[in-house]
Design a protein around this nucleic acid. Structure first.
Lengths: 225, 225
DNA sequence: AGATGTATACTTGTATACAAGTTAAAATTC
DNA sequence: GAATTTTAACTTGTATACAAGTATACATCT
């Protein structure tokens, strides 16, 4: 599996290497416990140590590897780890919805519907790359709405992992046929519907239900599941 | 103001520079909007660009600066930003308490009391460096208890900012006399007391009250407040 | 054999060099 | 004087070089 090159537009070598390594770690090609050497990685990618070093620091900041005196040890991302990631995603979105629900913001709802439309289009074209990207955009759009710098930063710190996990699982979902793809889109539409109620309790329940369901999807579409 | 050298034991040049810059940004010596050049910083610290570059990436990961094509722009940390940081701290501790409250864990309570004892000692010696470090340790000990890798990682990502803010505010609190110091310790003791109740609702209320009060303290002891 | 010392091949941390791109000011042209 | 081009001084991204420390395997000694 290779990281979508479209997502590397204008990226530095360091970012590209980080993305590639991230995908390999999450997909399990590089296994937990393995030890990464800057020299070796640089050799494999045909670059110097500089961009590799940058990539290592990035991945360390995401918790995928741990920098030590002698080599970087791969922490990996088990199914349980992804569930923990979903815990954080739930915390973020729950918090955000709690801060946004009172603002009707018709623009937000409209924009979210537009994004789901793009997902439908991507589904029709059988394009999991575009589909997962729109999925990410959907959630990012909601989070942005809160105007909360620290929460947004928190999101940005897990964003690369989230998009990578989405990419992997979405490919799996696509290979599973149209009904599962349809289900993913419906989930988003349901969430939008509840957001329109402007009833915080209902919205919170909807968010919770959304992530509960996502965990289910996860078990069906993540390598380890 | 200088960053406590005790906290830099075994740190690389990159980490030391990051810590020093972080303190200057948070304390306002380096102001929001200012543009940092790797070359200039390297010159000021008498090092090469390599460790500076590492420090810049660290600070960028913490949201204190933003890396751009031409220089890194300082985002700073306003009073509002610190309040947002407390939002996240509250989210973390609330989540963690929700996962830990059922486990009696006498060791945890015992350890927390021990930490408060150390705070008392530091207070007696008029040592804000040790005091703020124990304050940090107190919260870290609670968070560790949840055994939740992603949440722990989230904590670690804001940890350097938290300790720096604590260092600044604690120095201010110390200069304000004994009653304010006493108040901080009492807050921690109250939280421990409620944790012993094993009643989740009471614990959640206590956590909320703790951070509400911290915000008050913040307004009295943060430069901008 | 077992313990100890040593050589060697790794590792990261830091310094330096160079290329490519951006900004801003100065010089030139109209 | 104003607009435009050119130039010069910056910036980061990447490559390379060197220093210092660590683990491992091997040799030596008891």
């Amino acid at each position: 599996m290779k990281f979508p090159s479209i997502w590397l537009q204008g990226a530095s070598l360091g970012e590209a290497i980080a993305s590639e390594l991230r995908l390999q770690i999450i997909s399990g090609t590089i296994k937990r416990g393995e030890i990464l050497s800057e020299n070796r990685i640089a050799g494999e990618f045909g670059t110097s140590r500089s961009p590799v070093r940058e990539a290592m620091k990035t991945l360390s900041g995401e918790g995928l590897i741990q920098l030590e005196r002698m080599g970087a040890v791969v922490m990996g991302l088990s199914l349980k780890d992804v569930e923990e990631l979903y815990d954080v995603r739930y915390l973020i979105e729950s918090f955000v919805q709690g801060h946004v629900f009172m603002n009707p913001q018709p623009e937000l709802i409209q924009h979210l519907r537009q994004i789901v439309d793009r997902m439908e289009l991507a589904a029709k074209h059988g394009d999991p790359i575009e589909f997962s990207y729109q999925d990410l955009t959907f959630h990012e759009r909601i989070i942005t709405e809160a105007n909360h710098k620290r929460i947004l930063h928190l999101w940005k710190s897990i964003r690369p992992i989230v998009i990578t996990v989405m990419f992997i699982t979405t490919k799996q979902v696509f290979s599973g046929g149209g009904t599962r793809v349809r289900h993913v889109m419906d989930k988003h539409l349901q969430l939008i519907g509840e957001m329109e109620s402007l009833d915080e309790a209902r919205i919170q329940t909807a968010v919770q239900r959304y992530f509960d369901d996502s965990r289910q999807t996860l078990h069906l579409s993540f390598p380890e599941g």
